[in-house]
C-alpha cells in the first residue's frame, strides 16, 4: 500500500489532481467496516477462510501426486512448486482482501456503480478498490504464509524477502486486473475479456516457468506479467539477491503507475459521457 500511495502522488497523465489521496485513517476505517460486514455472516466468514485454505491444500495434493510419478520436471520439484504456490496464494490473497473490487470493476463500470465513488470526497481509485473485501482472500493469504513457513521455518532473511515479494506480487496482480477491467471504460461490455485476462494470469502463474519457451516467454514477462507475479519472486526467495529484487520493485512501480494512468484515462472518458453509447 505505501507503494501505491507513493506513485499516486505523481498524478498520472499530467491531469489536474482531482482530490488528495484518501488518508490512511479513512482507508483503515473502510477495511474495518469491510471486516465487520464480513463477520456479520458467521458461517460465511469462517467457512470462506477455512475452506479456501483447504482448497489450496488440495491443489498441492495434485502436485504431490504428480511429483510422486514424475520426480523432476526440468529442474522443478515439489518444494519449488510449494514455494511458487505459497507466493502466488499469499500475493493473490493480499490483493483480493485489500482490493476486493479489483475483479469487479468491469461490471461496476457497466452498471454505473462507479458514480457513487465519483461523487464522494476521497480519491475514487483506492476508495473504489478497497470498498469490498474478499473473505476467501484471507484464507489464501494464510495458506501462503503457512506453506512458506513450513518450507523455511527459521530463515529470517528469506522471511523478509518473502514479505517484500508478496507485496510486490499482490500489487502487480491488482494493477493488472485493474487495467484489464478498465477495458470496460473503452469497450463497454468487457466482462468476458477482462475475466479471461484475469484468469489467464492466475492460471499461468501456478505452473513452472520452464514449460514456457520461445515467444511465449516474452509474452509472460510483458503483456501478462506472470513472470513478475510468480517466477521472479520465486527466484528471489530461493537465493535472495539485490539485483532481481530491484527489478521486481521497479516492475511493481511501473505496473501500479500504469494502472492509475489507465484508470484515470477511463474515468475521463466515463465523465465525458461517451460510455452511454457504448453501454447501449
Amino acid at each position: 500500500m505505501p507503494g501505491v500511495a507513493g506513485t499516486g502522488a505523481a498524478d498520472p497523465a499530467g491531469g489536474p489532481a482531482r482530490r488528495p489521496l484518501p488518508g490512511l485513517g479513512f482507508l483503515l476505517a473502510l477495511q474495518r467496516l469491510n471486516l465487520m460486514a464480513g463477520m456479520a455472516y458467521r458461517w460465511s466468514f469462517l467457512s470462506q477462510v477455512v475452506f479456501m485454505m483447504l482448497n489450496n491444500a488440495i491443489f498441492m495434493v495434485f502436485w504431490w501426486v504428480f511429483f510422486q510419478r514424475f520426480p523432476q520436471v526440468q529442474g522443478w520439484g515439489m518444494d519449488d512448486m510449494l514455494l511458487l504456490f505459497a507466493l502466488v496464494a499469499a500475493g493473490f490473497g493480499l490483493s483480493v482482501t485489500l482490493f476486493g473490487n479489483a475483479l469487479r470493476l468491469s461490471s461496476m463500470i457497466q452498471e454505473g456503480k462507479v458514480d457513487v465513488f465519483l461523487s464522494a470526497p476521497p480519491d475514487p481509485f483506492l476508495h473504489l478498490l478497497m470498498s469490498r473485501m474478499s473473505l476467501s482472500g484471507i484464507g489464501d493469504f494464510l495458506f501462503g504464509v503457512g506453506a512458506f513457513l513450513w518450507l523455511y521455518p527459521a530463515d529470517p532473511v528469506r522471511w523478509l524477502a518473502f514479505g517484500v515479494v508478496v507485496v510486490c506480487s499482490g500489487l502487480i496482480l491488482t494493477a493488472f486486473w485493474v487495467i484489464s477491467q478498465c477495458l470496460a471504460f473503452f469497450l463497454g461490455g468487457s466482462e468476458g475479456i477482462s475475466g479471461i485476462l484475469a484468469e489467464a494470469l492466475v492460471t499461468l502463474s501456478m505452473y513452472p516457468d520452464s514449460l514456457f519457451t520461445g515467444g511465449v516467454k516474452y509474452f509472460v514477462y510483458s503483456v501478462v506479467p506472470v513472470g513478475f507475479v510468480a517466477w521472479l519472486p520465486v527466484s528471489i526467495v530461493r537465493g535472495p539477491g539485490a539485483g532481481p529484487l530491484a527489478l521486481l520493485v521497479a516492475a511493481t512501480v511501473l505496473w501500479v503507475w500504469l494502472a492509475r494512468l489507465v484508470f484515470a484515462a477511463g474515468l475521463r472518458r466515463y465523465e465525458s459521457g461517451n460510455l452511454i453509447q457504448a453501454r447501449g
Binding site: R32, M36, M39, A40, R42, F45, L46
Partner: peptide
C-alpha cells in the same frame, strides 16, 4: 451492532 455484536452473532 458493532464488532462485538458481530462476534457474538458468529458464536
Amino acid at each position: 451492532p458493532g464488532v462485538w455484536g458481530s462476534l457474538r452473532a458468529l458464536v
